[in-house]
């Protein structure tokens, strides 16, 4: 429906706005196209084998993405395992338990964490976090849970686990704040009904709030996963950077983003560079996939309260 008396400024304004919105699509296409252009040589050379091959040998010009895909998935999984319970619990605390006057300061502190640049996390990770992990947490894990293959082998400090922990810290703010939004959207009626049945605080949260918000919280986690996959600088500085598939979380690993960051400047052959571009393309594809899932999970919840005129 068009409002009466349309004039050219209206039309041009609308087109300008549309143009700006469409820029997003153009940018996605541009990034995808540039990455594809860059990786054509590697795609032609290795084909689909690239994704499953574990060889990464710049000397013989043989490249395979599997160790990086594996490292990206494992470090992101560790990050989620740590960050989701912490983030959701913090969100629950903030919406259900915390006294009103401390809610805002806590939210502010959590948001400050989101503001720390990746390179600063890396600096801190190397000089502060890693030594502590190596001398305390990892030693403790090895003595108590050492019977699991996950916690065996020598402790170096830099490791898949350290990478996962740093990513966990970096995705905590988004998981916490999205979870908080979702918990806040749970109707109070839910809580009141449960209280009326004589439920305790925790039972209200478990039965009325969490089960109601399950889907949304899952969506929040997937959104966190989307962020975790692309983390670059900080991970690069703590994960150990070794293209190897190892069962132990104490072993060094490597991720798609960090191999690009580490080796993009040193790639001397065209095929080497092209393979790095293809890793970028794989990363973009995985990011898109994860975001699709997150959107699908969150979309059903988002009550679209748009303020449109039409």
């Amino acid at each position: 429906m068009l409002p009466a008396g349309i004039r050219w400024p209206d039309i041009s304004f609308r087109w300008l706005a549309l143009l700006a919105a469409v820029t997003i699509g153009v940018l996605i296409a541009l990034v995808g196209w540039e990455l594809y252009q860059g990786s054509r040589m590697a795609i032609g050379q290795f084909g689909p084998r690239f994704l499953v091959s574990s060889t990464w040998n710049p000397v013989t010009d043989q490249y395979g993405a599997w160790p990086f895909i594996y490292g990206t998935l494992v470090s992101s999984a560790i990050a989620l395992i740590i960050a989701v319970p912490l983030g959701v619990a913090t969100a629950l605390y903030l919406t259900e338990l915390a006294p009103m006057r401390i809610r805002q300061p806590v939210i502010m502190v959590v948001e400050m964490l989101a503001a720390v640049p990746s390179v600063i996390f890396g600096l801190w990770g190397i000089f502060v976090l890693i030594p502590w992990l190596r001398d305390h947490l990892f030693v403790w894990l090895k003595t108590t849970l050492g019977f699991l293959p996950l916690f065996q082998g020598p402790i170096y400090g830099v490791s898949m686990l350290a990478g996962g922990i740093v990513v966990a810290i970096m995705i905590l703010p988004i998981i916490t704040s999205v979870s908080r939004e979702i918990l806040r959207s749970v109707p109070n009626l839910q809580r009141e009904a449960a209280y009326a049945l004589g439920a305790t605080h925790w039972e209200v949260m478990r039965i009325a709030v969490l089960s109601y918000a399950k889907r949304g919280l899952f969506g929040a986690s997937v959104l966190g996963l989307g962020r975790a996959l692309g983390e670059t600088m900080a991970v690069t500085m703590v994960i150990g950077n070794r293209p190897e598939v190892s069962a132990s979380l104490f072993a060094p690993g490597y991720t798609l983003a960090s191999v690009i960051a580490n080796e993009f400047t040193e790639a001397t052959t065209d095929l080497y560079l092209s393979s790095l571009f293809e890793l970028g393309l794989v990363l973009l594809a995985v990011t898109i996939l994860v975001n699709v899932i997150a959107q699908l999970m969150l979309r059903s919840l988002a009550g679209s309260g748009t303020g449109k005129i039409n």
Partner: peptide, 20 residues
């Protein structure tokens, strides 16, 4: 669609922007 693409763009690793 646009929102979705904006979220994907947010997830593009920063080094990729440098390359592009």
């Amino acid at each position: 669609w646009i929102r979705f693409m904006a979220d994907v763009l947010n997830g593009v690793p920063s080094i990729v922007w440098g390359m592009v």
